[in-house]
Design a protein around this nucleic acid. Sequence first.
DNA 1: CCTCGGTGTTGAAAGGTTTCAATCCGACGG
DNA 2: CCGTCGGATTGAAACCTTTCAACACCGAGG
Lengths: 343, 343
Amino acid sequence: MSVREPGARSASVKDVAAAAGVSLGTVSNVLNRPDRVSPGTRERVLKAMTDLGFVRNESARQLRAGTSRTLAYVMLDASNPFFTDVADGIDAAAEAADLSLVLCNSRDSASREQSHLALLEQQRVQGILVTPVDPDSPSLDEVARRGTPVVVVDRTRADQSFCSVAVDDVLGGRLAVEHLLDRGHTRVAYVGGPAHLGQVHDRLEGARSAWAAAGHPEDALAVIETSALTVAEGREAGARLAGIPTRRRPTAVFCANDLVALGLLQHAISSGVRVPDEIAIVGYDDIEFAAAAAVPLTSVRQPRQLLGRTAAELVLDEATNVGHTHRQVLFTPELVARSSTLG
Amino acid sequence: MSVREPGARSASVKDVAAAAGVSLGTVSNVLNRPDRVSPGTRERVLKAMTDLGFVRNESARQLRAGTSRTLAYVMLDASNPFFTDVADGIDAAAEAADLSLVLCNSRDSASREQSHLALLEQQRVQGILVTPVDPDSPSLDEVARRGTPVVVVDRTRADQSFCSVAVDDVLGGRLAVEHLLDRGHTRVAYVGGPAHLGQVHDRLEGARSAWAAAGHPEDALAVIETSALTVAEGREAGARLAGIPTRRRPTAVFCANDLVALGLLQHAISSGVRVPDEIAIVGYDDIEFAAAAAVPLTSVRQPRQLLGRTAAELVLDEATNVGHTHRQVLFTPELVARSSTLG
DNA sequence: CCTCGGTGTTGAAAGGTTTCAATCCGACGG
DNA sequence: CCGTCGGATTGAAACCTTTCAACACCGAGG
């Protein structure tokens, strides 16, 4: 029952074999094909294992077997509920395939992402799912080229160099603005940034197309750019909005994600602006906190779990199926109307 | 530039050595002690590596070296922002120690937790941080006894069998209720559950002690038990609260965590109950969404990142320091008063 | 009594990296 | 010209598990 000192060597199959008085091949059989071993010896071996505190050395196992039983998701930002929901979906699929999932958080840093990718590659994980800081980064291609299946999650890329799973952001933007037009709004603002983010850009594009289709002059759709998609930036944008004279102030706002929308909502309420009467708000992602906001938020829902599950399935196909061909899956978003636009 | 088929063997040091016309010892030197190798050969070896798409095999490395460079955090519920903040703190410490952090999500399931622990142990990670489903589970002891440093995060245990890092929940409960007493409330309810959770129990205990210290009869502190600490349960509790006749209805509520508080807040606002005038609300954890709520939430702040950072430091000490002794660190929470109690 | 079939067990090889003692080679001092 | 020294390179062993062909044993069938 003693505790091992740091650095002390742990028991190996050889030790177990010696203690049980069998060969080490037999110990291995107990671990991997217990039915091949007679009950008597099996008991003896198992007892020796618990006595010695034997722990199978996964490195050696994997070295010999050449294969690992884990999948990895390198997430962009673990504190955004959207990504943890995606991770849940991946987890479900991994569990179904009897793999375990490890998560790495790059916290928006390309270098952290880089070192996670390197380590996972060296560990010979079955596949890597990643929401990259920059989808065009060549290091993704390198990892894939060297043989580790890579699937890009919630981002896309012009070329088709690997599988990806994403949601149609242009359509999402269109849905949001069409909804606002249906509700009779004629002065609308889009809030989000930085502009170079694919999501921010695509959602705006969708918004503009719906706006133009309704016959409004394109440049009458105001754009308020933020420096990040966070709650704090949303509040900030709310303040800027409040500075616009009432007669010209938008009566509705479409935010690039729910965090921004929640910040904006908070600013509105705390400064006495009524939602949706004076200003209607549409968010994006439909995270749990959107429905739970003080004024439940109308939002564009993305199939988060499904996104994760599908990505996991793609990476597994690539890992096991020789005839695999890359696919770009694009899901359809859906508008969920709640009080923040419905009065 | 060709892509390897699934199952194809990747290049090894031996292949690199052959391609560069050196021995494999030299290749290893290039990887581990580049200064020992003359610039000429080094270049040649590096070129061979990129040509062949060489990826160091971490299993073999670790098998030989006997040590890994990773730390793991087995989190209880990745979709609770509280835990992702703790993970950020751990990550910071890991980065400082030049280790990489992998996250596993047990999603409130003891069996998932179990299999994550087993795998991590077999991978010989440097240490395991865990917020367990059940802190008294004997499998934690077994892992520790067999030699992997284990630190329990945000939970405690009667015995001192390993290091733990937690926050004084009894004090937190006291702070919350003292604040409400200061604001003149005389009818207060505690909302949380299930009761067997250590946190739920301790916070209530603290609440009761403050309540009694103010001379109020102990049983006059109402308790509304929920079946989980979620937003949905918070809404539910709000509905139950609303069912109490006004004259007997509590004028203030102390919730066992912010998710419950946010749900309760949402119910109040949507049914026209004014916060804090008709009902004051105190949450617990001070997650980011608490400050960003429509009525910013008064909450008991826990030092989340510090919790994580300290836990990581403890596990590293245990992993490297032979003279390590277990410590139970208890942090002090702090009340953050906002509009939900301040009018 | 011998052979056969089957069950249970063994021993050695393989997998990729790191380490370290040993070797090699060129340069330099004597 | 020889011996020596230092830096660069090599080869073999070790890490632990898994696999698989070979072996020992036993009872049944001929």
